[in-house]
Amino acid sequence: MSKRGPDVAVLTANRLSDGIVVYLAADGRWVERIEAAAVARSPDQVRDLQEQGARDSAANLVVEPYLAEVAEVAGRPLPARMRERLRVDGPSILDDVPGYVMPEVAGVRPLASSPRVYLNSGGEGSDPVSIEAA
């Protein structure tokens, strides 16, 4: 990562209402899956992400947006730091947590194969859950 900031990055934050990790997508929505995140590959794009993040933070959608450096591996953004990888995957020890269950959320169900990813009820592989500006 260069001193001026990451060269290839996504913008990540926590959703204000529930604290869940979200990523800024190209269409301006905040999504839970990093695969759907907008990847900035130039300083201009990086700045655009940051500005959008600042706006949405001021609009009380998200809290503490920041840039996370990623590498693009097989078309998917892969975070550089362990911290960011943990934010994508959730705690590394969830399989060992006693009693761990995902809560039922109206209209959303967990994907059978990856319990840490939500999809909306449109069926497997459909749009990522996102939040809209109020």
């Binding site: 926590n14 529930d18 604290g19 869940i20 990790v21 809290v63 503490e64 911290r83 943990l86 934010r87 959730g90 705690p91």
Partner: peptide
């Protein structure tokens, strides 16, 4: 002051 932190994945 009400014990609410913002952590890595959630509050």
């Amino acid at each position: 002051r009400n014990g609410v932190y913002l952590q890595l994945h959630a509050y």
